[in-house]
Design a protein around this nucleic acid. Sequence first.
DNA 1: CACGGCTCTCGACAAAAGTCAAATTTGGAT
DNA 2: ATCCAAATTTGACTTTTGTCGAGAGCCGTG
Lengths: 321, 321
Amino acid sequence: MAIRPAEQLIHKAAWLYYAHGLRQDEVASQLNISRASVAMYLRKARETGIVNISTSTQLFTDDVMARRLEDAFKLDAVWIAPENAYLADPSTDIAVLAASVFLELVRKGDRIGVAWGRTVYTIADIMSYADLQDVTVVQLCGNLGAPYSYRPDQCTMEIARRLNAKGLNFYAPLVLSTEELAQGLRAEPVIRDQLAGVADCDLALYSVGAVDADSHLVKCGALAPAEMAALREEGAAGVIAGQIIDAKGEALDCSYNRRVISAELASLRAIEKRLMVVQEDSKFEPLLSAIAGGLCTHLVIGAHMAARLLERAGEAGKKAS
Amino acid sequence: MAIRPAEQLIHKAAWLYYAHGLRQDEVASQLNISRASVAMYLRKARETGIVNISTSTQLFTDDVMARRLEDAFKLDAVWIAPENAYLADPSTDIAVLAASVFLELVRKGDRIGVAWGRTVYTIADIMSYADLQDVTVVQLCGNLGAPYSYRPDQCTMEIARRLNAKGLNFYAPLVLSTEELAQGLRAEPVIRDQLAGVADCDLALYSVGAVDADSHLVKCGALAPAEMAALREEGAAGVIAGQIIDAKGEALDCSYNRRVISAELASLRAIEKRLMVVQEDSKFEPLLSAIAGGLCTHLVIGAHMAARLLERAGEAGKKAS
DNA sequence: CACGGCTCTCGACAAAAGTCAAATTTGGAT
DNA sequence: ATCCAAATTTGACTTTTGTCGAGAGCCGTG
């Protein structure tokens, strides 16, 4: 990558402004350009991750509830967005927090697995830019040819773009019509390698889906509402990376799952840091299942959800004693 | 550390402003305080490291010269501050760069060894704040009761303060008058433990001193100008963490060194990342010695010094071939 | 070589952020 | 209970920053 003169200028301006603490007009005269240009360069510097502005997420883990949740569910870290106080839209708050937490968890050289869904895409969308060139973002599951902008490959690419990282998409459909075809495709070297590579990730980012007619799987046409209802009868409790899980967080033994092209749950569990973000209160049961299945080590949720989880943990504790 | 309501407010303000991108007046109305207070809180947030603003130091490593230096001297990374262009005071530029590089190299949970000198103190002084509570900053060498503000313990403490980290000073003089006393003091459990702990550091920050009458060792009275001159005759080539090294970067076999309380060079070499920062051009020979002795893996220097180093490397190469 | 289409740059204005002294609250000591 | 000192908060003011449309420079093309 040749260093463009423009990029050089952006870098110099950012350096003088942010590192040396000069004012914009001082920077301008140093570089012999107008102050307006300096302002523009600085915006670009922020947008390309040449400068990083991050706020500590301590406040949200330094919470009694968060600590109790960590203990109760054996999680590495929990962040709770206080739903009530701050903003008009509470779900944005969760996404903003999740994005910050995500950036805090990423390390240079990491390999990051990203699933898909509205939540993940929202996070990608508000995530600030960073300059992590040696990071690789890999797609955890096949694509859905949906009219939504939060397609699996979109989520992966957008996050890669934000981080200035390399994006590794994979071009297979999420669901095929026969088990044989799915099996065959999974055996394809290109696909197989990528699926195998999932276990080498250092960090995963996903949410959990609900098993109802509102699920993306239904909206995108992967499953008919009736099929979904039937799966629910069979014990479907949630959706992770396009796969149906049961209440224990194991893959449900069903035709649909056998027709899916996605990272195996075992591979996901092999990832050291599994960051799960849940926005909707309605995903309470699915989340419980995901936690039960050990699919999550780091959790970002809203205060209400946190309270419900603790309540449940309390009940379980009572029953046990 | 109990969470003060004030600290909570600072955190909230910082969150709304930096993470959500609200304006100060919006934050003010959200929190029911005046905008002026918000501005103050935000300054505090920056000063306490609740928000981190960092600029990439890529530009300074992405240099042809830097690459060639890395190759020629087998260094992990080299940063070169372009002396000419930017600012009135070029040495400030090196210090600012060094501070950024330093912050980039620190990881959570790290143990950091810090030596002393004008250079190190300058870096500490302009370093921005960070919130790294689980970091420990340890002092690499004994104290000098000098009237200077860049005493070893000052350097350590200041850097610890900036990082919100724990500072581990050690209270022994840098030089004693007899070898016996030095030996005895080194055997003291408190001192011994701390010296032994140096090898466990993940990162070291130091500069190298010149062997002349301007040296701190002379200015602070540890050595008389005449003694210094004598040591020079005996092969002294530089000063590292209060110790005299020869041209090969080994500790010089002399009475002075035996009377010093400081981390052994072997312990320093055991540290994974050894960040050396050199501001003055006059430290060319000392720097060469330090590099020869493997006392530095990461290097921050000015453009002029870089050119001289490369020139020397070229000569050496020619001689070899 | 003249022409659009393109990006980059600048000046001027509007918006936002920083600052300071005065006013208010807080906490402790008497 | 009352006072005082220290810290916090505020409104008013100044400085700094963001933005936008106009104009300048650049390049490939007809």
